[in-house]
Every structure is written in C-alpha cells, then in structure tokens.
C-alpha cells in the first residue's frame, strides 16, 4: 500500500522531524543522557507510545521494514495500531519477524533473538527519569545527573536488600551507561537488562509525555546497578514455555481457568512461533 496522501510522509511535518533528528544525534553523542525535545501531540493519547512513535517517524524511510511489539507480542492492541498507523501514513512494509525488521519499536521488552548492526530498537518510555520516585524535583535530578551523584539510588537498592533480602525491582531496573549516566531502561523486565550491554543495534528511547529522548549507541557498556555481595540477578519464572518448550526465554504467566490452573508461555511471540515451526519441521 502506498501512503495516505492526506499526511506528510510518516505523519510529522519536516520541521518537527528535523528537531527530533537533531535531538537524536545529541542523545547518541552523550549515551544515557536525557535530552529534552518538543514532543508534539499525536493522534493517540500520551502513555500509548507517543515518544516511541515520534522517534520512529523521524528516522523511518520508505525502504525500512517495521516491527512493533507490546510486551513481546506482535498482536496486542498497541502493537497492531502503531504498525497500522505507520503502514498508513508512511506506506512502509511491516513484519512480525525479528530478523526481517530494520526498525523495531518496542513497549517493555527486548526480543529474545539477538539484534544485528542493521537494526534500530526504539523504546516507548513512560518515565525517563530513573530517580523520579526518589526525587520528584526535575531541577534537582538534573543536577544529580550533572554531578553523577547517584548515592540516592544506591541507598534505595540497599534498603531493598535490608528489607526483602534482594532488590525488589523486577522491571525498570536502573542501569549505568558507560559508567557515567544513570538511566532507566524503560519498564523492560530486569531479565532483559543484560541484552542492552554492548548490543550490536542502536537503541533509541522516546518519552512523549515527559518530552525526553535518550540513546545507547551500539557496543556501549550498560551495567545493572548492584553490590559486590548482592550481584545483579535477573528474575525468570521457574519453568518452560508450554507452547515451544523454551527454558531460556522470558515467560508470561497465563491463568487458564478459575480453579488455579495456569501455564507459562514465551512473552516474545515471534520467538515462540519460530521455535514451534522448527519443532514441527523436525518432526515431519
């Protein structure tokens, strides 16, 4: 399908794209630093991925192949509507297959399959400020980032360990980028944090409501905060996927009836389908 002629290519006007593009370049040049940008109103409410959509719109070209995932799934409302949006306003090819995509916009997951140098991962970010729950004043957190003063976050993690015996954050687990900036990885599960470390693909983060863009260039050090005697341990549900049998992927727990029945399935639907198809092929 060609694009809807009622809109500029990829919805945004050219001035807005240029502004976002300049912001993206500075974000890449200062890994992990949140750069403010003039987020526009989009034809969907804040909190539905307006930041990610604006970043995608600014980088997207006619030859790109777009994949959109929401919690790992290609077929949930948010993913389907964003994919259709770009298909309509930019006429780009879309896919659900991770290796075929050149741009992957994601809400709260990193695909299981390792990404390559030819790909760009765009995160939808609800709250870009990792210190927000500890210090609500943005003027103050800005200064803390300037001074790399992250003691507050270490105290929070320490208090978690003192109270619960472990760090209680299972998602949005704070990371240090190049040992300089404390960064929120967006609400991906802590399980996905290690994938950010020295990833071959460029990672871009867009927060529409909070009007911030940040980035992690390829092959950049991303370390989840921890302590020597309490090393970072990503959590994964005990068990294997009920559909494909994977013992290494991130699992969602699905309640199947009202008598306590439940099963675990891969959160990454493309990875799971791929594995099921391979098993069938081998059996045939």
């Amino acid at each position: 399908m060609s694009q809807d002629p009622g809109y500029n290519f990829a919805y945004l006007d050219e001035n807005t794209k240029r502004m976002i593009r300049r912001t993206l370049l500075k974000a890449v040049a200062i890994p992990g630093h949140q750069v403010p940008f003039g987020a526009r109103e989009m034809p969907l409410p804040y909190g539905w991925g307006t930041g990610g959509i604006q970043v995608t719109a600014a980088i997207l070209g006619p030859r790109d192949v777009l994949k959109v995932i929401d919690q790992g799934a290609d077929d949930t409302t948010n993913a389907v509507s964003i994919r259709r949006f770009f298909h309509r306003v930019a006429g780009v090819a879309t896919t659900t297959r991770t290796p075929e995509a050149s741009i992957i916009q994601t809400r709260h997951r990193i695909p299981e399959q390792p990404l390559t140098e030819r790909q760009i991962l765009v995160y939808q970010v609800p709250m870009p400020e990792p210190l927000f729950k500890l210090e609500p004043r943005l003027a103050e957190t800005k200064r803390m980032h300037a001074l790399a003063d992250y003691g507050l976050m270490h105290v929070k993690l320490y208090e978690d360990i003192a109270r619960h015996g472990h760090v209680s954050a299972a998602y949005s687990y704070p990371v240090m980028v190049e040992e300089r900036y404390l960064m929120s990885p967006s609400p991906i599960p802590a399980f996905d944090n290690p994938k950010m470390h020295r990833m071959a693909a460029l990672q871009l983060f867009g927060a529409g409501r909070e009007k911030k863009i940040y980035a992690v260039p390829p092959y950049t050090a991303v370390r989840s905060l921890d302590f020597e005697d309490h090393p970072f341990r990503p959590h994964r549900a005990e068990g294997c996927c009920a559909l494909c049998g994977s013992t290494t992927s991130y699992l969602d727990e699905v309640v199947t009836d009202d008598r306590g029945g439940r099963m675990f399935v891969c959160s990454d639907t493309d990875y799971c389908e791929e594995r099921q198809a391979n098993t069938k092929e081998q059996a045939a």
């Binding site: 500029n8 290519f9 050219e14 794209k17 240029r18 593009r21 993206l24 370049l25 890449v28 040049a29 600014a58 980088i59 997207l60 070209g61 006619p62 140098e117 460029l202 260039p217 390829p218």
Partner: peptide, 19 residues
C-alpha cells in the same frame, strides 16, 4: 525531494554518529 532525501541523509548521519 526534500522529505525522502533528508531522511536518507539523516540516517547516514545517525549511522555515522552511532558507529
């Protein structure tokens, strides 16, 4: 074609800045 050409040039610059 400013829309398409500036997009492809920007991607070249973004790629250059990232690598």
């Amino acid at each position: 074609d400013p829309v398409k050409e500036s997009q492809s040039c920007f991607r070249a610059v973004l790629e250059a800045m990232s690598r």
